[in-house]
Computed example of a mutant assay.
Amino acid sequence: MSQISPRPGRGRPRLLPGKIAANPRDQILAAAAELFVSRGYAGTTTREIADGAGLRQASIYYHFGSKEEILAALLERSVQARVEQAGKIEAGMDSVAPDAALYALAVSDMSALVAMPYNIGMLYRLPDVIASPVYDRYGHLRGELVAGYGRVAERAAAERVPAGGEPGLGDLLVQMVEGVISLRREDRIGSTTVATIASACLRLCGIAEDAIEQARETALTALAQT
């Protein structure tokens, strides 16, 4: 693949691991993601974003009307694909056992979080992001994810969870899965981290150890085929 020559003394930011940002908009988002996560949203200026993207500050406003619009785009990117993947797994539960579906959901979700550039899943946890008016526009997406987890967990737990789902179960499962965000920030993700957390999600639903092992094998086989 041909390489884009960087500006002297500064490398081009990357939107996805191993790929150079393909256009100015993606360069801006990549630079902003790195800065928001490392310095905080409130502590980052559009001038710094432009400098990180290798662009003039005026170019920022050609693609985004404000810093808030950049944050909005990153928030949407950081959760929309997770919501869509959860929907696909839930829709496929007729052909996969519910406990395997829950395991697959946890694994695929954590894999997405671990692969996100600059750990942008962290944005939903930053106080200055939560305080931003933009947060309310995309906070509902995380709510959709929580609801999806709750529905899958209810079916996986069967009679162990009351009809209508255990209050807060979906949110608790999502919090467990999103633990990889902090672990990644602290460079504490090991070879068994994802499997350990996914198994813990099933235990929370009262699923027995032997069933968890079977669910793991079924889930990994199903994910490998997608």
Results as ranks from 00 to 15, higher is better:
P98F: 03
M110W: 04
R77W: 13
K67P: 05
P117E: 12
L113K: 04
I120R: 11
S111K: 14
M93F: 07
V114H: 11
A101W: 02
D109A: 10
R82P: 00
V96F: 07
S66P: 04
D94I: 07
R77S: 13
S66I: 12
I130D: 02
A81K: 10
V96A: 05
L74S: 07
A86C: 09
P98V: 08
A115Q: 12
Y118E: 04
Q80F: 10
A97L: 06
E90D: 04
V79F: 08
S95N: 05
I120Q: 05
L123H: 11
Q80E: 04
V96K: 01
D94P: 00
A101L: 06
R77H: 14
A86K: 00
A86W: 01
D99T: 11
L105S: 03
N119P: 02
A101H: 01
L74K: 11
A81L: 06
L71H: 03
V129A: 12
V79T: 11
Y103I: 02
I70H: 04
E76T: 11
Y103T: 00
E76M: 08
S95A: 15
V79Q: 07
S78A: 15
P133F: 10
L141C: 02
E90R: 09
A91I: 07
E84G: 00
S95K: 13
L126G: 04
Y118M: 05
A86L: 09
V129G: 06
I70S: 06
L75S: 09
D94A: 12
V107F: 11
A101N: 03
V134I: 13
D128N: 12
M110P: 00
G87M: 09
G87R: 15
N119D: 09
K67G: 06
G87D: 08
V83G: 02
V83M: 10
L75D: 07
A97T: 08
L123F: 14
A72Q: 07
L126N: 09
V79I: 15
S78K: 10
V107D: 02
S108M: 09
M110E: 01
M122R: 15
I130P: 00
E84M: 07
I120H: 06
S95L: 12
A73Y: 06
G139M: 02
Y138W: 14
V134K: 01
A86D: 00
L113C: 03
Y124Q: 12
G65N: 02
P127G: 13
E76N: 08
M93N: 01
P117A: 15
L113D: 01
V134S: 02
L113T: 02
L102H: 05
D99M: 05
K88S: 01
P117L: 12
L74V: 10
L141W: 10
V96P: 00
D128M: 14
A104R: 05
A97M: 05
A101E: 00
I130G: 05
A104G: 04
P98E: 04
A91H: 13
I130N: 06
I89A: 03
N119I: 07
A91L: 14
L126T: 10
R125V: 06
S111T: 10
S108K: 12
S95W: 09
L75N: 07
